[in-house]
Write a protein that binds this DNA or RNA. Sequence first.
DNA 1: AATAAAAACGAGCGCTCGCTCTATTAATCA
DNA 2: TGATTAATAGAGCGAGCGCTCGTTTTTATT
Lengths: 251, 251
Amino acid sequence: MGLVSSQDHSFLGSTFDDYRANFPYQGDQLFRVLFERNQDRIKSKKIDIAANNLQKIFESTFTLSAKMGFHEMSLRGLSKDTGISMGGLYSCLSKKEDIALMVLDIVELVTTENNQLARAEANELISLEMGIKYHLYASTLLQPWFFFLYFETRSLNPENQQRSKNIEMNIIAMFEETIKRGLNKTQFDVHNPYFVAHIILLAIQDWYLKPWKNKQEDLSLETYSDYLFIMVKKLLRLDEGSLSIMQKNLS
Amino acid sequence: MGLVSSQDHSFLGSTFDDYRANFPYQGDQLFRVLFERNQDRIKSKKIDIAANNLQKIFESTFTLSAKMGFHEMSLRGLSKDTGISMGGLYSCLSKKEDIALMVLDIVELVTTENNQLARAEANELISLEMGIKYHLYASTLLQPWFFFLYFETRSLNPENQQRSKNIEMNIIAMFEETIKRGLNKTQFDVHNPYFVAHIILLAIQDWYLKPWKNKQEDLSLETYSDYLFIMVKKLLRLDEGSLSIMQKNLS
DNA sequence: AATAAAAACGAGCGCTCGCTCTATTAATCA
DNA sequence: TGATTAATAGAGCGAGCGCTCGTTTTTATT
């Protein structure tokens, strides 16, 4: 249920189309960003060529490692699938692990930005709604990236494993703080904010981890997002009545 | 419909201690079952020796592959960690993959039994409660097994990957059917049973996938189980009042 | 057209992998 | 105790790994 007027929430808007229209990490641009953020690893000089190769590398990596796992994926296999020779691969990478590190970098970047956008909402309920939407939207646009990081975190060294865990913990913390803020103003009624924040994260993760499950049930992104928000309101003991009152207070 | 008294719920009982006391897949017995169910893979003849070696093999496998992943774990590393020579390992295995197959076998066995036990409850709300409890209890007693299967499903061949997925789908289906049964009798009020069933599974999985998260928050098994059941009742729009009425009908 | 720079190539290096196989030790039983 | 079977040991095999590097091909500049 779309309850609030969209233009107030943030420059990204509250619908998937709005969000996508302003999302800078997609298509060509994503790989140009990747090139610029990883100059130290990449020997290639020309951004157009490098970005093009990076795109092939990540597309093939996601296909292959979803099937068999990142470690099981060999660089010879990657070379064959991308059509880039071994030498070509190593002009965009300094080592195999770099692929995983670049995924970590992008997912960390995007989720951090989403957390900030959600926190920027003054009203707690809207903050929750936007937090859910932004994370669902971003993880839809970058589904293979989020999926990869979740399952391949253990291929990273301990320090980067921790960075990956922190991405998750920061999302929970954002939701938990927002719920607690709402609690202090007796806006919400729930006795374990952490548990609810936790459940929200699980539902968001499930969206990008098991797309086949929702495809099977014919759940669209917007429907899933709505169900999730309705669920959250139930858990915070907000029925439709109390919600509309709040809505009125906003405008 | 016939309502049941609490001792009928199942021979396993409803507390963790009851469940554990009757749980056949723990300690020595687990590995003796494993030996008997996998005669074709195992060259060893004597059950005592084989069960003892299997125990070491699985303990080390869970330690090593939680750190680095199953594929990254080498059999030389496993040999060192268990203290069993390569030849010794291969008298309990026909190939490395057998380890993952045996984990799949056990988790499939236990969850199928739990689903049957939960379905056997005539009352829908109690069925949900028991379903949650049994799955939480079993995954606590066999935490490394459940954890391993979740993360290493992709090491399996397509056929067995499907078996692993089906374990998950069958749990969701069990909860979904129970919720729908309750809906038909207007016992529950919720408009997407699948979504709720789905969320229950996620919360159960999170319990065994990220024990460190709950340890950090100091959530015990019983507390977690209670929170989860309270959450489910909220999602089904059953407040404490309507619950006690139902409980009265039971006795 | 000549030259310099960048990109692409892929055989080969050193190493580790899963797995095998024979020699040896331990256990069991007549 | 000698005979037979089961368990263990660990060097060795071929395959495949990540990665390198001398060379060739393409592109850009003069």
